[in-house]
Design a protein around this nucleic acid. Structure first.
Length: 273
DNA sequence: ATTATATCCTGATCGC
DNA sequence: TGCGATCAGGATATAA
């Protein structure tokens, strides 16, 4: 369940390892990942590595011939992992889906459940379907209010929508709503100005804190070196059904919304306004 | 137009 | 101890 903080962590760690590296060879071990298209990044050089929504983006530059650029987007989905290794020995084959052999080291894409996706794009700014990134200056209280307006979806469901805000998944949706003291079933478009301001502040605060702690490792997430995140110790509600609320001592409740678990504290997050 | 549901996929866990 | 059933959820396609 890599969400914004986990993807940000991976991108930041890969950046210095991959910058300037040339892709010598691509081995696609899962036919589902479209071998033909991926093979064409061979010979290209990694210019930048950054996060794009929930995806890790590699900006590639062609160093020989006519100058050109393209972007390799890696969506980790549920169980995808990008691991960098300096070893020339054959990598662990279990769940290995793609191997990029570089002029120094290799970038390995592991994905047990095969939900992950690799795509190539000429340009990243051309898709209008992607939502606002809450880590950018454009994410203002007013912008959030504008997006929420008119929606009758429950807040928790709305926070998962990548066409509105990018980067929030099932773990941080619960954590953000707890921090904002908002009930997950409240209609998204019905918040008061004060509640909207709280939600805005908590989206930023929770994601920022999680990034600082290199994300959450709940089951599968590991960073570029195969190390786990530290945010799980700071989780207030996610995965804590039946345990005591760290704020009020009440019991954390699990709720199912859209076939997904939501965790909240009924005392700290009352149903009324 | 908006919102809800089924689907993909496999490892871990659960109950008998 | 073994084994089938269930659960986990990001995003898309399809249905309502």
């Amino acid at each position: 369940m890599p969400e914004l903080p986990e993807v940000e962590t991976v991108a930041r760690q890969l950046a210095p390892l991959l910058a300037g590296r040339r892709i010598k060879r691509v081995e696609v071990l899962d036919a589902k990942l479209d071998a033909g298209a991926l093979g064409q990044v061979q010979g290209w050089t990694v210019a930048e590595v950054f996060r794009h929504g929930k995806q890790v983006a590699l900006k590639l530059a062609r160093t020989r011939g006519k100058p050109a650029e393209q972007f390799l987007l890696v969506h980790l989905r549920m169980t995808g992992r990008l691991i960098w290794t300096d070893s020339t020995a054959p990598p662990e084959p279990r769940h290995l889906r793609v191997r990029f052999v570089l002029d120094r080291g290799s970038l390995l894409f592991y994905d047990p459940r095969r939900f992950g996706l690799l795509t190539l794009k000429e340009c990243l700014t051309d898709d209008s379907s992607i939502g606002l990134d809450p880590m950018t200056p454009s994410f203002t209280r007013q912008a959030l209010g504008g997006l929420l307006a008119g929606s009758r979806q429950p807040l928790k469901t709305w926070l998962l929508r990548q066409d509105q805000l990018v980067g929030i998944g099932n773990i941080y949706a619960s954590e953000i709503l707890f921090a904002a003291r908002l009930h997950p079933q409240r209609p998204a478009g019905a918040l008061s100005a004060d509640e909207c301001a709280r939600l805005h502040r908590c989206v930023q605060a929770v994601l920022k804190l999680a990034v600082k702690h290199c994300g959450t490792t709940f089951s599968d997430f590991q960073d570029a070196h195969g190390v786990t995140g530290r945010f799980q110790r700071l989780l207030q509600v996610y995965g804590r059904e039946g345990q005591l609320c760290k704020t009020c001592g009440g019991e954390i409740v699990r709720l199912v919304q859209q076939q997904r678990s939501t965790f909240y504290c009924p005392v700290c997050q009352p149903a009324g306004q």
